[in-house]
Each structure stands twice: as C-alpha cells, then as structure tokens.
Write a protein that binds this DNA or RNA. Structure first.
Lengths: 210, 210
DNA sequence: GTCTATATGGCGATAGAC
DNA sequence: GTCTATCGCCATATAGAC
C-alpha cells in the first residue's frame, strides 16, 4: 500500500469499497467519487474509464489475496502442524477480508478475461506447476502418515470447508445460527478446531473398514 | 415447470439464463428479450419492470434449490449411510445446477431484502427451527458413533467442501487441474468418495490423541 | 490537478397502433 | 397479446476554465 494521502490511493480505497460491495455494474462512478471526496471528472483523470478502474481493483485484490495464500503455503513444518497452522491462518485471513472471496467469485461467474489475466499475473509460473502443498501431502502419504488419495481433493476440502462460512455468512446465520447470542469469534475458533480434527483424523490410516 | 410454449415460461427461462450469468445489474432487458425471441415491451407487459422480473427469478431459483436440499435432508437411514448418500446426491444436484450457488451468493453479498424474503418464503418455519440433519448428528453422537462437536460445524464442513469446487471451478481448473486430459465426471465421483471418507472417519471416535 | 458544466449514449419504461 | 417507435433518465465520459 502507498501513502494514504496519495490521491490514487484514496481513489483505490473508495473504488474497492464500492466495487466489492456492488460489483462492476452495480457500482456507480458517482458513489466512488463521493466516497473518495472528489468528483467524477477526477476519477477519469486518474483511471481513464470505469472498466479500467474496475480491472485495476480486481487485479489488485486478487494479487494481494494470492500472495497471502502463497505465503501460507510456504512451510517446512511436519504435515500435521502445517495443516493446523494453515487452517488457522487461512481462516484468520478470510475473516480479515471476508468480502473478497465473493467479489472474486462473482467475477469468476462471468467467465471474462479479467480473471484469467489476473491469474496469469498473480501466479508465479513455477508455483502453478508444482504447488508446495501437493508435495507436502504426497510426502505424508509416502511416510504412511495419511491415507492415499488425490491430493487435490484434500486441498479442495480444506479450502472449501474453511471458505464456505465467509461466503455464505448472511444466509448461514439465518438458517443455522438463529440465536440471540451468537459469539462469532468463538465460533470461528471452534471452526478451526473442527476442520482440522475432521480432516487430519479423516486422513489417518485406518485398519480394514470401508 | 409449466408447459414450454407458454410465453411466461419462455421469458422466465431467458431471464434466468441472463440474470444467472450477468447478475441483476449486468443483465440487460434487451438481451433477455432477444434470448426469448420477443421484444422489450412484452417483457414489461408480463413482468412490470426489471426489478420485479429479477426478484421473481431469484425466488424461483432459491426455492427450487431449497426444496431439493430439504428433500435430501429427509432420511431415516443410519448416520453413515445418510452422510454418504447426502454428499453424493448433493454433489449431483450441484453438478446439474452449477451456476446457481454463485448466483445466490452474489445476491447475498448485496445484503438486500430479496434474500431474506426469499428465505422466509422458501423455508418452512418448523424446518429452520429444527434441521433434521442436526437431530441425526446429535443422535449419532449420543450413540458414540461419532465424536462430540458442534453439529453446525459438521454441516458447514460437508456443505462447504462439496460446494467449493462448483463455485470456483474456472479458477480451480487453472490453478490445480491444469492438465490436457481432465476427466471431470471421474473427478466428481472421486470427490464424493474423498469427502465422505475424510468427514466420516474424521468424526470417528479416537483413542487418546489430541 | 481539480473543478463545473455539458455532451453522448444506453437502457428501462411507456404510448399507442394493430 | 404483440409489435414499433419514442420518451426520459441516468451514468459514463469529455470539454474547458481555473
């Protein structure tokens, strides 16, 4: 992030706010300008048009999230500890950026080129070829620490079960957590425990059953 | 569904297509009219304005998905079999309607009243008070078939890990499945197996560890 | 760089003939 | 019920002064 009184930075923040909330088409340039405390003309001065501004925001958010996740994937801990800390930090990350996943997925659903370009720019080539997490999982399998299974299914299960709550929070709270006194922080801590326990012990080698 | 040459039905299908793809604001009435093979004026004749049409579509989709899920939740199978069949049928359902979850979530992110109204209309009161799945899980815990844990965390884990692939498919295929010969059907069948095994055995009572 | 004022176009919505 | 033609607004974008 740049210094906070930089105009570009101010516009970025405002645009991010509005775009994340309303999406590319629901967002209005006027609202962004208002939120940034400037007028529409200046938006066009810095970012030639709405589409460029949107694309810029999307790539910025995508890259930042990606970088954080890639960071979480760097680890030389044993598999068990890696899994535990990854889930914990990943849920923390989502909690701090709970509106981003849906924002990214919304763009995804349009299947446009913005996403594929953002991926290309955000992903170091060598990473997409060999995710460190896959190597870690394969090693744990070789050592017999966990059962054999497509590592990608494991990754998708970890990510999916961690992510879901944040994507569906409004609906989930109505359908599932309709209580007066819902302690969200506590629930998230329990979620870390739950997901780790389910997945780690779900991967543990078993005797004969099934 | 109504008879397919009914005008309202034709419009519904077209509108669904466009709205699901582009969202409430990205969608254009002209495109819907084109896709339905009629003109804009007729859209307004049947559904007074864009918002009403959108709301109608959203509630329709939401209710249909809800009904299907509620169906899946009715079961008197033992927990193990219930879990296995639920995951399998739920993934099949998602596969047949893979664009709906994102559509619903996109609306969710706007936090509008459309969603909360749709929930109220789609959810039988008695169901939201007592989800049958929670009862099933609690019984299994009482019998000692699975470890004690907040049942809601289990439900979220099952749903989240099943759902994630369909919500993120484009991105996932780039990041994780960048092969020439990706057999999607096979991958989904493996996913059913993987999720069931991880979760069911992840819930199995353990000796002392952790 | 930043503003006010204005042009331009697109889109939702309606009027009105058939 | 279905169409063509058109209205009127609103949002993006630009012109041009300061």
């Amino acid at each position: 992030m740049v210094k906070p009184d930089d105009k570009e930075e101010i516009i970025m923040r405002a645009a991010m706010d509005v775009f994340v909330d309303k999406g590319q088409y629901g967002a209005k340039m006027q609202e962004i300008a208002d939120k940034a405390g400037i007028n529409k003309a200046l938006l066009h001065y810095y970012y030639r048009n709405k589409e460029k501004l949107y694309t810029h925001i999307f790539k910025f958010i995508f890259k930042n999230i990606m970088d954080e996740v890639v960071d979480l994937l760097q680890s030389d801990l044993p598999f068990k500890d890696f899994l535990k800390t990854f889930i914990s930090k990943y849920i923390d990350l989502l909690n701090e950026n709970h509106r981003f996943p849906l924002f990214i997925m919304r763009e995804l659903s349009q299947g446009g080129k913005i996403v594929s370009n953002a991926i290309k720019e955000a992903m170091p080539r060598e990473l997409s070829e060999h995710l460190p997490a896959i190597k870690l999982i394969e090693d744990a399998m070789s050592r017999g620490e966990i059962v054999r299974m497509d590592p990608r299914q494991i990754i998708l299960t970890v990510i999916g079960s961690s992510l879901f709550y944040f994507m569906g929070e409004p609906i989930i709270r109505v359908l599932l957590l309709n209580e007066e006194s819902f302690d969200r922080d506590k629930f998230l801590e329990e979620k870390k425990e739950a997901i780790f326990n389910i997945i780690y012990y779900g991967l543990a080698p078993r005797g004969d059953k099934q």
